[in-house]
Amino acid sequence: MTGRVLPHPLLTVALAAIWLLLVNSFTLGQGLLGLLLGWLIPFFTQRFWPERVRIARPWWLFFFLLKVLWDILVANVTVAALILAGPRAMRPAFVSVPLDLRTDLAIGILANTISLTPGTLSAQLSPDRRSLIVHGLRVEDPELLASEIKARYERPLIQIFEPPC
């Protein structure tokens, strides 16, 4: 297996891409050097990465990222309008969102996605990792917000990282 020689194939590709961006020249030589670094760095830092990342459906991840990017653009216009309208237009509230995700990476991605999208910000993960406390800028109905987050972001993440076998 590739387990010992190539511990993290995804990290290798990501590091090679970052190297190419950093030197800002897209030649074959730099690509090979990037791949070499991408192989050596995970190899020597194996102890810091105990879990291997599994992506069950890479294409879904791609579409998910596109959707999030679009949501970020919409979110910023909304938040900018709210800020310009002033404090009176806001109805801030804390909402607790129960989690069905279990893996650390998926929860981390969900928390970051919530922070970057419309008027919501993940504030804290409960100690038992069963719920995420979210702060909303303009909350009309806390239940609706929680179910919206679950349907829009959590469900695709479950499909991508933890497919029911």
Binding site: I72, L73, A75, N76, V79, A80, I83, P87, M90, P92, S115, L116, G119, L121, A123, H135, L137
Partner: peptide, 13 residues
């Protein structure tokens, strides 16, 4: 907590 929203979203974009 509301102030936290401005820098994280608008400034980043």
């Amino acid at each position: 907590y509301t102030r936290l929203h401005g820098p994280t979203k608008a400034t980043t974009l």
